Amino acid sequence: SIVTKIISIVQERQNMDDGAPVKTRDIADAAGLSIYQVRLYLEQLHDVGVLEKVNAGKGVPGLWRLL
């Protein structure tokens, strides 16, 4: 499923980069989806406690990390 793919992308990127959070844009590119589509999935995963959003604010790139 797309959700499983997104989780594995975040996991893979974090492992490659010493646990650093992953940008929404990088996840979207790797999943082959638009940034808006991916954001909806990321928000859902956040709501159920799978991911945390590391930063927030208007015009700030979203950074995500697995919990």
Rank of each mutant, 00 (worst) to 15 (best):
S1I: 10
S1L: 10
S1Q: 10
S1Y: 10
S1R: 11
I2L: 09
I2Y: 07
I2W: 13
I2Q: 05
I2G: 02
V3I: 14
V3Y: 15
V3F: 14
V3W: 15
V3N: 04
T4Q: 14
T4F: 12
T4E: 13
T4G: 11
T4S: 14
T4P: 05
T4W: 13
K5T: 09
K5C: 10
K5I: 08
K5M: 13
I6F: 02
I6T: 00
I6G: 00
I6Y: 01
I6R: 00
I6W: 04
I6A: 01
I7K: 04
I7L: 11
I7A: 03
I7G: 00
I7V: 08
I7C: 05
I7H: 03
I7D: 00
I7W: 04
I7N: 00
S8I: 09
S8Q: 13
S8E: 10
S8Y: 10
S8H: 10
S8T: 10
I9R: 01
I9C: 06
I9T: 03
V10E: 00
V10W: 02
V10Y: 01
V10R: 03
V10S: 00
V10N: 00
V10C: 05
Q11D: 04
Q11A: 12
Q11P: 00
Q11G: 08
Q11W: 15
Q11C: 09
Q11N: 09
E12H: 12
E12Q: 11
E12A: 10
R13I: 13
R13S: 04
R13V: 04
Q14V: 05
Q14T: 07
Q14E: 05
Q14K: 02
Q14H: 09
Q14I: 04
N15I: 12
N15P: 02
N15C: 13
N15L: 11
M16F: 08
M16D: 07
M16Q: 12
M16Y: 09
M16K: 13
M16R: 13
M16P: 03
M16N: 10
M16S: 10
M16W: 07
D17R: 13
D17E: 12
D17V: 12
D17S: 15
D17T: 15
D17L: 15
D17G: 14
D18P: 11
D18R: 12
D18I: 07
D18T: 07
D18Y: 13
D18A: 10
G19N: 09
G19C: 08
G19I: 03
A20N: 11
A20E: 08
A20K: 13
A20Q: 11
A20C: 07
A20L: 09
P21N: 04
P21L: 06
P21E: 02
P21F: 08
P21V: 06
P21H: 04
V22R: 00
V22C: 05
V22F: 09
V22H: 01
V22N: 01
V22K: 01
V22G: 01
V22I: 08
V22S: 05
V22L: 05
K23G: 10
K23S: 15
K23Q: 08
K23C: 08
K23R: 13
T24W: 02
T24E: 15
T24H: 01
T24I: 04
T24D: 13
T24G: 04
R25F: 06
R25Q: 15
R25V: 11
R25C: 08
R25N: 09
R25G: 10
R25A: 13
R25T: 11
D26Y: 11
D26I: 06
D26A: 14
D26R: 02
D26C: 03
D26V: 08
I27L: 03
I27V: 08
I27E: 00
I27H: 01
I27C: 01
I27T: 01
I27K: 00
I27S: 02
I27M: 01
I27N: 01
A28K: 01
A28G: 03
A28N: 01
A28I: 02
A28Q: 02
A28T: 00
D29I: 13
D29N: 11
D29P: 01
D29T: 12
D29R: 13
D29E: 14
D29A: 12
D29Q: 12
D29S: 11
D29Y: 13
D29G: 06
A30H: 06
A30M: 07
A31D: 01
A31I: 15
A31K: 01
A31H: 00
A31Q: 02
A31S: 09
G32N: 08
G32Y: 04
G32Q: 07
G32L: 04
G32H: 07
L33S: 02
L33Q: 03
L33A: 02
L33T: 03
L33C: 04
S34N: 08
I35G: 03
I35W: 08
Y36N: 11
Y36I: 11
Y36H: 13
Y36C: 09
Y36V: 13
Y36K: 14
Y36R: 14
Y36G: 12
Y36W: 12
Y36T: 14
Y36M: 11
Q37I: 15
Q37K: 11
Q37T: 13
Q37P: 01
Q37V: 14
Q37C: 10
Q37L: 13
V38W: 01
V38Y: 00
V38R: 00
V38F: 01
V38H: 00
V38Q: 00
V38N: 00
R39A: 11
R39Q: 13
R39P: 00
R39L: 15
R39V: 14
R39F: 08
R39K: 12
L40A: 10
L40H: 10
L40V: 13
L40N: 07
L40T: 08
L40C: 10
L40P: 11
Y41F: 09
Y41T: 04
Y41K: 02
Y41E: 02
Y41H: 05
Y41W: 09
Y41I: 14
Y41V: 12
Y41G: 02
L42A: 01
L42V: 02
L42W: 03
L42F: 01
L42I: 02
L42H: 00
L42C: 07
E43C: 09
E43D: 09
E43P: 01
E43I: 06
E43H: 08
Q44V: 10
Q44A: 14
Q44R: 13
Q44S: 08
Q44D: 07
Q44E: 09
Q44K: 13
Q44T: 09
Q44W: 15
Q44I: 12
L45V: 02
L45P: 01
L45M: 06
L45E: 00
L45C: 01
L45Q: 00
H46L: 11
H46G: 06
H46V: 15
H46P: 02
H46C: 13
H46I: 08
H46S: 13
D47M: 12
D47G: 09
D47I: 13
D47E: 14
D47Q: 15
D47F: 11
V48D: 13
V48Y: 11
V48E: 15
V48R: 13
V48G: 08
V48W: 14
G49T: 02
G49A: 02
G49N: 04
G49M: 03
V50T: 05
V50F: 05
V50G: 00
V50I: 15
V50K: 04
V50Q: 05
V50H: 03
V50C: 07
V50R: 05
L51I: 09
L51F: 04
L51D: 00
L51Y: 02
L51T: 01
E52G: 07
E52P: 01
E52Q: 08
E52W: 03
E52F: 04
E52L: 05
E52I: 08
E52R: 04
E52T: 06
E52H: 05
K53I: 05
K53M: 06
K53C: 06
K53D: 08
K53Q: 06
V54T: 07
V54W: 03
V54Y: 05
V54N: 01
V54I: 10
V54D: 02
V54Q: 02
N55P: 11
N55D: 13
N55Q: 10
N55L: 06
N55E: 09
N55M: 07
N55F: 11
N55I: 07
A56L: 10
A56G: 12
A56D: 12
A56W: 07
A56F: 08
A56C: 12
G57K: 10
G57H: 08
G57F: 05
G57Q: 07
G57I: 06
G57S: 06
G57C: 07
G57A: 07
G57N: 07
K58D: 15
K58H: 11
K58A: 13
K58R: 09
K58F: 09
K58E: 14
K58G: 10
K58L: 11
G59V: 04
G59N: 10
G59C: 08
G59S: 08
G59Q: 06
G59T: 06
G59M: 05
V60F: 11
V60E: 15
V60T: 14
V60H: 14
P61G: 14
P61Q: 14
P61A: 13
P61D: 15
P61S: 12
P61I: 10
P61T: 12
P61E: 15
G62Y: 15
G62Q: 14
G62W: 10
G62F: 14
G62L: 15
G62R: 08
G62T: 15
G62C: 15
L63G: 15
L63V: 05
L63Q: 10
L63R: 11
L63P: 02
L63D: 06
L63I: 05
W64L: 00
W64I: 00
W64V: 01
W64T: 00
W64K: 00
W64Y: 02
R65T: 07
R65V: 08
R65S: 08
R65N: 05
R65E: 03
L66V: 11
L66K: 03
L66Q: 03
L66R: 02
L67Q: 10
L67I: 15
L67M: 11
L67P: 14
L67R: 15
